[in-house]
Write a protein that binds this DNA or RNA. Structure first.
Lengths: 126, 126
DNA sequence: ATTACTGTACTATAATAATAGTACGGAAAA
DNA sequence: TTTTCCGTACTATTATTATAGTACAGTAAT
């Protein structure tokens, strides 16, 4: 499991929430595969330099929400979701797009400008 | 001052933080003008159905951060920022675009698809 | 059987977030 | 001058977030 350290301790967004989002994205994007084992609680906590209980909370909630399952004594694993992975991913994409568009609009930025901007980024990234 | 009710009480993001972001966006986008008076604390709290102290916190922090100033007995007002308004707005736009692109990429969505998607939205919104 | 690793379940503590309510003093209008 | 509006400053209480530490039981390898 690839682990970037994108956790911001000074963010107003709770740590457990930041970590949850990251794991969700990894599952929905296919970076984490069904039945793949996640980093053990204690190890992950050490890696992110947060308390073990914080990771416990993250894994527990992701279990409740259907993203993970646990085998006591063995670890946490990615659940093979019934719902189509791409469908869930597209749902998430739609919601982040909606939020992005709302914020951009609030900034007085038009959708035309957004498209123009992404085309520039597209060229740069080629 | 136009007020949409985009506050989500069940969000993991603290209320005061959500409200702060909304006001910042309105100032940077020019919806709120320099020296324009903001909604009084008690009234705003009632409108958003949050506690007055939450709004106190919001205004106080936005004061510290240079977005607002207060005239005790009169109200809070939008500070005339030294930095160019559009520049700050574009900086903010760049950062939210970066974050959006990162999340979309994590979901396995290409920039080509993003552009295609915005073009569809563009048509719908016309 | 022992050891190491793992999830799980606690207790305790501190900081932050949010609510509720009261009170004081400046500003401006009646 | 009195009233109303408004920022400011408190106290008190509750829930959430995060840390720290201990303990127990399942799993698997030595």
């Amino acid at each position: 499991m690839k682990t970037e350290f994108t956790i911001k301790t000074n963010s107003p967004i709770p740590l457990y929430e930041q970590i949850k989002r990251e794991i969700k994205l990894k599952i929905l994007s296919g970076i984490l595969h069904p039945d793949e084992k996640l980093i053990p609680i204690r190890e992950y906590a050490k890696l992110l330099k947060v308390n073990s209980n914080t990771i416990v909370k993250v894994y527990y909630q992701l279990d409740i929400e259907g993203y993970l399952y646990s085998k006591p004594g063995q670890g946490y694993f990615v659940r093979r979701t019934f719902v189509d992975k791409n469908k869930k991913g597209l749902e998430l994409f739609r919601s982040i797009t909606e939020e992005y568009l709302q914020n951009a609009t609030d900034l007085g930025i038009s959708i035309d400008y957004i498209i123009k901007n992404f085309k520039i980024l597209q060229k740069k990234l080629k």
